[in-house]
């Protein structure tokens, strides 16, 4: 584990914590962008260049902007008087802590069985965008078409759901 990994991991986790804990919703969206950027850096650190830049384009460029738009359109930046957390925050915290404990226990106890446990560094896989494109057009062409259909249907559906209804049209 290099120093770079710890820096990026700290940045990502801090961004995620801030996104969940901050009171002002706009600040939450900005912290979420920091977490997304940290995850993109992690993808680059894992030699997955295409996924890293796709993460930057899609999450920072599209999803974060969409979240900011939704916050501003719903006036969600006003902090509610009775707190930002729901009726039973302890229940959610205990559930999340329990799941993290189980996941962390499983990861640490299977550390010897995981690939790369011998301590020898795994050579970085050389994957070019051309290989990814060939795989998308060849072996994964059916999932690609299904995702295209899903995205079209989801975006048209989102526009229809969020569209203004004319007065008396209901």
């Amino acid at each position: 584990m290099s120093v770079v990994f710890y820096l990026i991991a700290g940045l990502t986790v801090a961004g995620a914590l801030a996104a969940v804990l901050l009171k002002n919703t706009v600040h939450c969206a900005l912290a979420l962008t920091v977490a997304f950027a940290g995850l993109a850096l992690m993808f680059l650190e894992l030699d997955a260049q295409f996924a890293g830049f796709a993460q930057i384009l899609i999450y920072i460029g599209a999803v974060a902007i969409l979240v900011v738009f939704a916050i501003l359109l719903t006036r969600g930046s006003e902090t509610p008087k009775d707190g930002v957390f729901g009726a039973k925050p302890l229940f959610g915290l205990v559930t999340a802590a329990g799941i993290f404990a189980v996941l962390g226990w499983a990861v640490l106890h299977s550390a010897q069985a995981l690939p790369g446990a011998g301590g020898s560094p795994t050579p970085a896989p050389t994957v070019t965008v051309m290989q990814i494109g060939n795989a998308l057009m060849d072996r994964y062409v059916l999932p690609l078409e299904i995702v295209a259909l899903l995205l079209t249907a989801a975006l048209i559906g989102a526009v229809i759901v969020a569209m203004h209804e004319k007065a008396g049209a209901r």
Binding site: A96, I99, L103
Partner: peptide, 23 residues
């Protein structure tokens, strides 16, 4: 994997405890 587990737990805690639907 540990960082991913931590991120998942943070996201789950946020989804379970926040009032605002966008959060």
């Amino acid at each position: 994997l540990l960082v991913a587990a931590l991120l998942f737990a943070i996201g789950l805690a946020g989804a379970l405890t926040r009032r605002n639907a966008i959060l």
